[in-house]
Computed example of a mutant assay.
Amino acid sequence: MTKKILVTGADGFIGSHLTEELVRRGYDVRAFVLYNSFNSWGWLEQAPADVKKNLDVFSGDVRDPHGVKQAMKGCDAVLHLAALIAIPYSYHSPDTYVDTNIKGTLNILQAGRELGVQKIVQTSTSEVYGTARFVPITEEHPLQGQSPYSASKIGSDQMALAFQSSFDMPVAVVRPFNTYGPRQSARAIIPTIITQIASGKRRIKLGALHPTRDFNYVSDTVNGFIAELESDRGIGEVINIGSNYEISIGETVQMIADVMGVDIEIETEQARLRPDNSEVERLWASNAKAKELLGWQPEFAGKEGLKRGLAETVAWFLNPENLKGYKSDIYNI
């Protein structure tokens, strides 16, 4: 077992679930959270007491190379999840995506090289593929920067792979498809639907309904990261973490309504539509490589798996203490 793990973005949606699971499995975890004057640890504030007491929390910013290097001292491996992720906000402020996603990743790589870190796992995204040219999408699919966000993630992925090629650094790239589950922000489609329904609305405001996605329950994504961490076979590789199941946004809306036992109408809101050439029309993952190299496969696979994952997600959002943290009346970019 690797001794000390740094998780960047540990205060976020996937990062908090990953941090908690690593602690449960006996890892010594340093949680890198974004500094703020409230000393908030983001979603880690909701972690069970037995997890919190075993955390080494570092507050900083991945854009600061000095803080990054300090955070990485004494760590054997880094799971790098810290990033700006919202696609609509990347239209608004693309410069911040270059600073955080590309420069932030460079800071991790530079520090890792200087400190001799044993493994760095870079977090990618299915958005780097753009609209599928063939399905299921393998890791050999062309990369297409259809939004400033996806372009910044292509840049950060390529920087990580360049360090592996140039300096023989032990780098791996994990490429999750559309992760969902408890704690996800309402800028994502599934929480957008659930929070509007849970707040009593029956006319739901959404964007495009025809694009397809490959949804992954958060525990499957977490298990994919840990499988990569514990494997020697992923170094220098890009590995999809996906369910190998394609479903349209429209079908997903209806499935959520069925799980929640309500009848709804859908209203298309112009502000929620991506520019025509920026919309990713189709995503469907091949997960054969993850199965072969990491021995990973999704537990929430296919239509039935998605239904189970949605039921767990809905149950979390229906808790009033959780729901009150969301603003269902406001479009969250």
Rank of each mutant, 00 (worst) to 15 (best):
T2D: 00
K4S: 09
V7Y: 00
D11F: 06
F13H: 10
I14M: 13
R24F: 03
L34N: 10
F38M: 07
P48T: 00
G60W: 09
V62G: 04
R63D: 03
R63I: 00
V68D: 01
K73A: 02
G74R: 06
A86L: 05
P88D: 15
Y89T: 08
H92M: 11
S93K: 12
S93N: 14
D95E: 14
V98W: 15
D99S: 07
N101Q: 02
K103F: 13
G104Q: 14
T105H: 13
I108L: 11
K119T: 08
S124V: 10
E127V: 08
E127M: 11
V135L: 12
P136H: 04
T138K: 02
H141L: 07
G145M: 02
P148G: 03
P148K: 01
P148L: 09
Y149E: 15
S150P: 07
A151C: 12
A151T: 02
G155D: 07
M159Q: 12
M159W: 08
A162Y: 06
D168M: 13
M169D: 13
P170N: 12
V174P: 00
F177D: 04
T179P: 11
S185A: 15
R187F: 14
R187D: 09
I193Q: 12
I194P: 00
T195C: 13
S199V: 01
K201I: 05
K201P: 00
Y217D: 08
D220I: 00
G224F: 03
F225C: 01
L229V: 01
G236E: 02
I239N: 03
G242D: 05
I256E: 13
A257I: 02
A257S: 13
M260G: 01
G261M: 03
D263A: 15
D263P: 10
A271I: 14
A271T: 04
R274D: 10
N277K: 15
E279H: 04
N287G: 11
K289S: 01
A290Q: 03
E292T: 13
L293D: 08
F300V: 00
A301W: 00
R308L: 08
G309P: 04
L310T: 01
A311H: 07
W316T: 13
N319T: 05
S328C: 07
N332K: 11
